[in-house]
């Protein structure tokens, strides 16, 4: 029943002329024998912000990490179904996972600056990927794009850890931008930040979508409604083994999800009745 509805929403979602950059077809993620996310169909349009919302344990972050194959590092984690990036299966044997990480960047929930200088934090990603150009220029350009340049331009040699939480997170965004990815995955990037830093990052995301496609997991529904073009609502159901299995309930234009949802559980969630 859900899949029929999904197919319906998907067509309405992908009706536009927009190019699809990432596509999941019947993607399920397992941890060992435990099914964490079940049968997800999603089309991520290029240069849009897509928000994943839903209660804890519904597999939003798990699904997000399948897009840059970071789940490969978790022992026992297995992905079924097809994820295509520019119509190419990213789990194909011929695909180099490191190349995927280069083209699909990621920003984590907790700011994770390397315990090095601000400059080195940005230069690291470029250097390991064999960047040969002018490093000073790249650092400045990345910091400018992350709206951090004016705050740190006089202390590039200082440790990234000396920055405030919000600045650290923007440093991590700058670091992700520096390797010029096409997609940026964000796993609750503002959940550890104060409202003012959050606002700054939201403004930043709106600028960044001109060049990048952004997929953002968030617990904050106001945030999703403010910044996202498309929103996917995930829910979890209890399994017999006592765990939780996540699935995609509804995926549509953000406006539709928040004001005219087609599923009752979406309506309940966005109006704050559970979750």
């Amino acid at each position: 029943m859900i899949s029929v509805d999904l197919a319906k929403h998907m067509t309405s979602a992908s009706n536009g002329q927009k190019e699809i950059i990432l596509k999941t077809e019947n993607v399920s993620v397992y941890y060992g024998n435990f099914l964490a996310v079940r049968g997800v169909y999603l089309d991520i349009p290029k240069n849009k912000i897509v928000a994943f919302i839903g209660p804890s344990g519904c597999g939003k972050s798990t699904l997000l990490r399948t897009f840059n194959r970071l789940n490969d590092l978790i022992p026992g984690c297995r992905v079924e179904g097809r994820i295509t990036f520019h119509k190419q299966d990213i789990y194909d044997k011929k695909i180099d996972p490191i190349d995927i990480c280069r083209r699909i960047g990621m920003v984590f929930q907790k700011p994770t600056p390397f315990p090095k200088s601000i400059y080195e934090n940005i230069a690291f990603g470029a250097r390991v990927n064999g960047y040969r150009g002018n490093m000073d220029e790249l650092v400045e350009q990345s910091l400018r794009q992350a709206a951090l340049w004016d705050e740190v331009k006089d202390k590039l040699k200082q440790s990234g850890l000396a920055l405030s939480g919000g600045q650290q997170q923007r440093l991590c965004i700058a670091r992700a931008i520096a390797i010029q990815p096409e997609v940026i995955l964000m796993d609750e990037p503002c959940s550890a930040l104060d409202p003012i830093s959050t606002l700054k990052i939201e403004e930043l995301l709106d600028e960044l979508k001109e060049k990048y496609t952004i997929i953002i997991v968030t617990h904050n529904m106001q945030q999703a409604s403010r910044i996202a073009d498309m929103t996917a609502f995930f829910n979890a159901e209890a399994t017999e083994m006592g765990g939780k299995m996540g699935y995609l309930v509804e995926y549509d234009e953000t406006q539709e999800i928040f004001h005219n949802p087609k599923e009752k559980s979406t309506q309940d969630y966005v109006s704050g009745r559970f979750g």
Binding site: N68, L70, L73, I98, D99, C101, R102, G105, M106, F108, K110, T112, F114, P115, K116, F124, G125, V128, N129, C172, R175, A176, I179
Partner: peptide
Amino acid sequence: IPNSLRMAGYALGATRWQVISEQILPL
């Protein structure tokens, strides 16, 4: 050394040795 640092390194397209030698070992 927190695992988040390793993840951050891998997410930037670094290989295991690049993450270990540049981020983990110095710490």
